[in-house]
Design a protein around this nucleic acid. Structure first.
Lengths: 227, 227
DNA sequence: ACGGCTTCTATTCCATGTAATATACTGCGT
DNA sequence: ACGCAGTATATTACATGGAATAGAAGCCGT
């Protein structure tokens, strides 16, 4: 052990504030485009301004909020161009990841992914959006996991956050949940069969469809989110 | 204009502290592995602890420093695995970027890149490391620029920072400077000729060689940077 | 001499105070 | 009624104060 990686910072108010703020943004409780102020946020969570500000700083460098100098902190909103940029990156990373996964993956890895797939299938059956999103996230997460590149991993996590705020309710359409499950299934089958090209193609199809779903929703809401 | 992007934050002490700290790290003035403390850094640059801390927070989320809870802030050091991770990502991004560049690039774009190449050639001739690094950076920067994905851009900037601290003096070997110029030349020629595959291959070769140069230097210094 | 306990110190982490500033509002003059 | 100036207010950006804690150093007993 000659390397000190990000040490556990078990409970720090900054860390806590970060987690809570991120969740409230991802869940849509803090609305995109709205401007909030540090003091109010701090009061609401019962800590001082400092840890809240530090948490917001981190969220800012992840592209979730923007500091508006003497006005407050704005939860970012996204246009079509943003969606395209994010999905372009996801394709780069995740397509490469599945190809690597075919080489690196072992049976236990596949069993793990299979288990996650089961969870998302159950969640889709119960129409449990929260659980579904979580399982969906873990599925993609796990595939990048086997490619063993921690930086790729954290970039992807960030991109997933962006996708989630870009489209909190896009996936809510019931058909899409089932579609996603079946698309994941196809990826999984190709992976187990060791077919790199097929796996890659299946992932590409999946990401393209997800992108389209997000874009369609954006268009549907057009005009309502203008400032 | 319906989109407020990162507003200019013209002069803020935090921004200023960030720039200065980043530069001192990239230039090796703050040494990898060493632990510094906020107050001393703040005193040295004549501001209070707050802006310095906020700057360090940002550097931390970019992976340049690590907060060690009651000890100080450590400038990150990197092992072979880190080098591999970073270059794996660079390849993903930059190879895709050159392919897109062939499609998107216009004559003015190529002229701009050519101009940058000239600068790096001159810098290499004069053995001016500082100027060379800057031109080298601009070269890669410009190629990603034409792919018009701002997020890809900022990720690449971050990766370049990491490469620079991983190997401040690696490129110092005079042969490598000349090699780099010639490798860039080859990429450039393929781009102008509109040959996507060749451009991609040339970039792949370039990145592979750069990675090797960094790894070689790491191996050469083996043992001296152990803690 | 050495191990364990205690004290001290350095440093972050969090809280709060202060000043600058952009925006909104109010009132007056025309 | 409308525009403009002046003022008030809300909010950050920055500074500083206070508390907790991890690690080092010293001390005592054996």
């Amino acid at each position: 052990m000659n390397k000190i990686r990000a040490i556990d910072q078990p409970l720090s108010l900054t860390r806590l504030a970060y987690k809570r703020l991120r969740e409230t943004i991802l869940s849509g409780q803090l609305k995109a485009g709205e401007i909030y102020n540090e003091m109010a946020l701090a009061r609401e969570m019962g800590v001082s301004r400092t840890p809240v500000r530090e948490a917001l700083l981190e969220l800012s460098s992840q592209g979730l909020v923007t500091f508006l100098p003497r006005k407050g902190v704005q939860v970012n909103y996204f246009d079509d161009r943003d969606v395209e940029e994010v999905f372009e990156l996801r394709k780069l990373i995740e397509l490469a990841a599945v190809e690597k996964a075919v080489v690196n993956g072992t049976a236990p890895d596949w069993d793990e992914v299979e288990e996650i797939l089961q969870q998302s299938r159950r969640a889709a059956g119960k129409r449990d959006l929260e659980a579904f999103l979580q399982a969906d996230r873990r599925f993609h997460h796990q595939l990048v996991e086997v490619s063993r590149n921690s930086r790729m991993h954290s970039i992807l996590d960030n991109l997933r956050d962006l996708v989630q705020v870009m489209s909190y309710e896009a996936i809510n359409r019931v058909e899409r949940m089932d579609e996603v499950v079946s698309e994941h299934d196809q990826i999984m089958r190709a992976l187990r069969a060791g077919k790199a090209i097929e796996a890659r193609d299946a992932m590409a199809t999946h990401l393209d469809r997800s992108e389209r779903a997000v874009l369609d929703q954006h268009r549907a809401l057009m005009g309502s989110s203008e400032e």
